[in-house]
Design a protein around this nucleic acid. Structure first.
Ligand code: MN
Ligand code: MN
Ligand code: ZN
Ligand code: ZN
Lengths: 143, 143
DNA sequence: ATCCTAATTGAAAAGACTTTTCAATTAGGA
DNA sequence: TCCTAATTGAAAAGTCTTTTCAATTAGGAT
């Protein structure tokens, strides 16, 4: 099931939040691309839908949407991060290092490795953060 | 082989850098704990060895040491990060979410998972970033 | 041991990004 | 349509990092 403005808006309402023009503009921006967007980029794109969308509102909206798992922060190679629409639950992202296209991987294939780490270190493992970088199918053909 | 001030200093020299008092102070600070330290924390600890160690110098020194793989940034849960001494090569870290103690895992047990991701997505995988969080052996006993 | 010079330093300023404050506006139920 | 709490944008404040630049320092050459 692909996210649409309607499904996303519905999730906002289900969590008791108002569906405002600025919030719609943020959703429009995120829906317009599969790449992570910075708050400033979201503002710029969002102003096509809500002309005076403020950067402060973008920050507040992203914080809100992150809480209800509508968006997820993505750490890029240089450490700073952008935001992408997310499906709920535990996922990982593969990011093209050339064009920044993101594909979400649902599920987690790291169980065995984490068990090994637990035995090796004596830690009780409670979570992990994984970002995978590579070249997308398109970018492999563009040297 | 555990890192000492002498081995670390030697590595700086081998890369053609001067061994200055401020740089020694940063190494002292990093050697004094197994937890990730922020630039400000490194400055505070380092001033025990070099009284007027400046924060700007800490930033410059960390950048330098990161280039020669003497230190590594560690992303904490809240996104900001600290630095720890690192062994060269590909490693991962396990961080205690209560006391922040870090253990380094050398090697990488994710080959199979990354192959799966490559097949699933069509991406050519070139790198990954993984941080594991948990409770260290000590902290498991302290509710 | 002393000199010399490029590397390095700290303070101050600038810059980038994020959060707080607050009066005005708005969504959506009554 | 009215009402009110939620939400908004602008401005200010705050945090963290980088740049600039004159002064200092490490370490090789004498
Ligand atoms: Mn996982
Ligand atoms: Mn690995
Ligand atoms: Zn690409
Ligand atoms: Zn612990």
């Amino acid at each position: 099931m692909t996210a649409t403005l309607e499904t996303l808006a519905q999730q906002l309402r289900e969590h008791g939040h108002k569906l405002t023009q600025p919030r719609c503009a943020v959703l429009h921006a995120l829906l317009s691309t599969a790449k992570p967007l910075s708050p400033a980029e979201i503002q710029a794109l969002g102003q096509g839908f809500c002309a005076d969308l403020g950067l402060v509102t973008v920050y507040r909206t992203l914080e809100l949407m992150e809480e209800i798992e509508l968006v997820r922060p993505v750490h890029l190679a240089d450490g700073c991060h952008g935001y992408v629409l997310a499906t709920p639950g535990h996922t990982h992202h593969v990011i093209c290092e050339r064009c920044h296209a993101v594909i979400e991987i649902s599920g987690c294939g790291m169980g065995d490795f984490l068990n090994f780490v637990a035995e090796r270190t004596g830690y009780r493992i409670t979570g992990h953060w994984l970002e995978i970088s590579g070249l997308c199918a398109d970018c492999q053909h563009i040297p």
